[in-house]
Design a binder for these strands. Structure first.
Lengths: 348, 348
DNA sequence: TATAGTATCGTAAACGTTTACGGAAATTAA
DNA sequence: TTAATTTCCGTAAACGTTTACGATACTATA
C-alpha cells in the first residue's frame, strides 16, 4: 500500500503539501497540485481511512442498523434493498459510504449498538425496526452520534425520525370500508412488539369512533406476519359468531394464507370479504383477485432518511437548510379487486 | 470518549501496561490487570478501532459485498438476511464483526470493490452475485485481501468459493422428470448474465444426454426472474407446436406467473404440466398445488462461507485445519404436488 | 527602496493504539 | 551474600493522516 509518505518522497516535496494538494486546500500551487494528483493516480494512492479517522475523528461512512434475523416484521421482500439503494444515492453525493450493520438474532440489539458506536466506524446512523420502547434510542441519544430512526418510538422524540404513515393507511382503509357500507371491520396485526402495531391499532380505533362504530375487541386479530398467520386469522374470523365483512391486513404477507383458508370453504376474497393489505409488495400483484394495497417507494424513503440524518450533521447541514427533520411518510392506495364488495346483503 | 491515556492517568500507571492488561499479554501482574479491567469497565472504555487498525493493520471486521439493486437474481432480502445470520454466528466466535457493503446500482461493481478495499475497513471479504466473468475477482486476487466467493466464476479459480449445487438440482430434477415418463422437458432461465444460468444449462444438457433425450433449443426459455417473466414463459410454452410436459424453473419467482397463465386457460400445474422450482422460498409453500422445490439452509450456508474465508486467513487458520476451502453446496428436494403428473396420456 | 502583503511550502505535533526494548525490583540459585 | 533469573512495568517509536504555525520568496504598495 502506497502512503502519503511514499508520494512525498517520490515527488520530493513534503507530506504536508501532498496532503493539502489531495484535499483541495487553498494554499498550494496549481502546478504542484496537478503533479501530486497525477502521481497519486499513477502510484494508485488512496487515503488510509484509519489514519484519517484517527486524526479527524471522522470516518466518511454512515451506518444502517438492521436486524438480520429471518422474519423481521414480515419484510420478506426487498424492503431493505430498496431503502439501501436510496440511502446510497443520497449519501454518495457527499462521498459518504454506507455500511449496513446487521444485528444478529443472537445478540441484544442495545449491546450491538453500543459496540458499533464504540468502534467509531461511522459518523452517523440510521436505525430500523424501531420498537415502542427502544433502548437503542436511549443510548444513541446520550451518545453524541447523529442518528435517524426509521419508525417512531416512545422512548424519546427529540431526534429525527421518519415513519410510514400507518395512521393514514388505517384511516384511508377504514374510511373506504365504511363508505362501501361495511360496519364490522376487523384488523389483523402482527404478534410481535413492534411499534407499528400500536399505531395501527390506535388509528383503527380512532377511525371507527369517527364513524360512530363501536369498537369490538374480538375483531382485533393477532398472528405471525406470514402465510400461516394469515390462515390462522382467517380461521378465527370464520369462526366468529358475528363475522366481520371487511378486514385490514397490516402485514399483507398474511394475505396468501387468508386467501387459502377462504378457498377451502369456497369463499372468495373481494366477494365474501373485503380486504385491504399493507404494503404493496412484489407479491401483492400476484394475488387473484388482486389485492388492494398501499404503494411505497423504498428508494425515495431511503433518500429521505439520508437527507434527514445529514441535516443534523454540522458538516452537511448547509445542503439541507430547508429540510424537515422528522416526517410522516405518505403512501398512496393502489386499487385492486379484493375490497370490491359493497354493503354485502349476506354478510358471511 | 475515554482513551487508554485516560485510563492510565486514572490508575497512575503507564499506557503500555494498560494496553497489555487489556489485551491479555503475559507480562502483567494479575492484580494490576484486574484493576485495569475494572477501571475500563467503570469508565466505559472501549478501544478506538482507528488507532488499533492504524497500528496493527487489522480491523477485526469482515465485509460482505452485496448488490443493493432491487432484483438481484431474485435474491430477495430473506436470502441475504439468512446468510448474514450464519456469517455472524461464525464470525462472532472470533470477535469479528460483519459489515455488509452494498454496491449501489449506480456504481460499477469493480470500482466499488476497489474503493472498499482501499478504505481498509475489513480484513477479508465475502462477495456474492458472482458473474461468469467477474472483474471483482480479478482485482481481489491481485490485492492481498482474503476473500471467498458465493458462486463460482470462470475468472480465476484459485480462491475459495462455495457454490450452490445447481448441477445437482438440475440433474435430480431431470432424473425425476424422466423417471415419471417425461421426454420433452423445458428449462426456464433468467435473462441476465449470472453464472448460475450457464451451470444450470450445462447440467440440463448433460442430464438429457444421459437419458438419450435430444436437446431441443426451443425448450430453453429465458425471461426475467419474476412474476411477469413466469407469465411470459408460460405463454411461450403454450404456443409451442410440440409442447413440453415438464419444466424446471431455475427461479421459482417465475412460478406464480406460470400458475397464473395456466389458470387462464383452465390448465392446472401438476396435472397438465410437471413443474419443479428452485429454490424453496417462503412463497413456495404458498402455491396451490404446492410447488416441488429444493431446500436450502441459508444460515448454514453463511456459516460455511465464514469458515471458508477464515481458513484462508493466517490468524484464524488454526481453528479450521480440516476445512475444505471450496465446495459445492448440496440441497435436498422437497416434495410438492406440482410435479405429480406421470407419463401424461394427453400431453398438453 | 523599504514595507506590507501574498503565495507557497516545510515542520512538527497530534489522534489512539500496540509493541520492542530496556530497566528495576523481586525471586531464586549458588 | 552474590549472581542469575524472573516478573513486572515504563519509555518511546511507529502506523498514516491532517493542520496550526512559521518560514521563505515573491509581488504590490508607498
Amino acid at each position: 500500500m502506497v502512503s502519503i509518505k511514499d508520494l512525498a518522497k517520490h515527488l520530493d516535496i513534503s507530506i504536508g503539501t501532498v496532503s493539502r494538494a489531495l484535499n483541495d486546500k487553498p494554499d498550494v500551487n496549481k502546478q504542484t497540485r496537478a503533479k501530486v494528483l497525477q502521481a497519486a493516480d499513477n502510484l494508485g494512492y488512496v487515503a488510509n481511512q484509519s489514519g484519517r479517522s484517527l486524526r479527524q475523528g471522522t470516518t466518511n461512512a454512515i451506518g444502517f442498523l438492521i436486524e438480520s434475523g429471518a422474519d423481521t416484521e414480515g419484510n420478506s421482500d426487498n424492503f431493505f434493498m430498496g431503502v439501501i439503494d436510496g440511502l446510497q444515492s443520497e449519501l454518495s453525493k457527499h462521498k459518504l459510504d454506507l455500511l449496513v450493520l446487521p444485528c444478529s438474532t443472537d445478540e441484544d440489539p442495545e449491546n450491538y449498538v453500543k459496540r458499533m458506536v464504540a468502534r467509531q466506524l461511522v459518523d452517523g446512523m440510521i436505525i430500523s425496526a424501531t420498537h415502542t420502547i427502544d433502548k437503542r434510542i436511549d443510548f444513541l441519544s446520550k451518545s453524541k452520534l447523529p442518528f435517524v430512526a426509521l419508525g417512531q418510538s416512545e422512548t424519546g422524540k427529540n431526534h429525527p425520525w421518519i415513519d410510514l404513515d400507518f395512521e393514514g393507511v388505517a384511516r384511508v382503509s377504514i374510511d373506504r370500508f365504511v363508505k362501501n357500507g361495511h360496519q364490522r371491520i376487523a384488523i389483523a396485526l402482527s404478534a410481535n412488539q413492534l411499534n407499528l402495531g400500536s399505531i395501527f391499532l390506535k388509528s383503527y380505533k380512532d377511525s371507527l369512533k369517527r364513524h360512530d362504530i363501536e369498537f369490538a375487541p374480538e375483531l382485533v386479530l393477532q398472528a405471525n406476519s406470514n402465510d400461516k398467520g394469515g390462515y390462522a386469522i382467517a380461521d378465527e374470523l370464520l369462526n366468529l359468531n358475528d363475522r366481520p365483512t371487511a378486514i385490514l391486513l397490516v402485514h399483507e404477507l398474511m394475505a396468501h394464507g387468508l386467501y387459502r383458508r377462504f378457498a377451502e370453504d369456497g369463499l372468495v376474497v373481494g366477494r365474501d370479504l373485503a380486504v385491504i393489505g399493507f404494503r404493496n409488495s412484489a407479491q401483492a400483484r400476484m394475488f387473484s383477485p388482486s389485492l388492494t394495497s398501499f404503494k411505497l417507494s423504498l428508494r425515495d424513503l431511503g433518500i429521505a432518511l439520508a437527507a434527514s440524518l445529514l441535516s443534523t450533521m454540522p458538516a452537511y447541514q448547509k445542503h439541507y437548510s430547508g429540510k424537515m427533520l422528522s416526517q410522516i411518510w405518505p403512501m398512496e392506495i393502489v386499487d385492486g379487486e379484493s375490497d370490491a364488495v359493497k354493503i354485502p346483503k349476506n354478510p358471511i
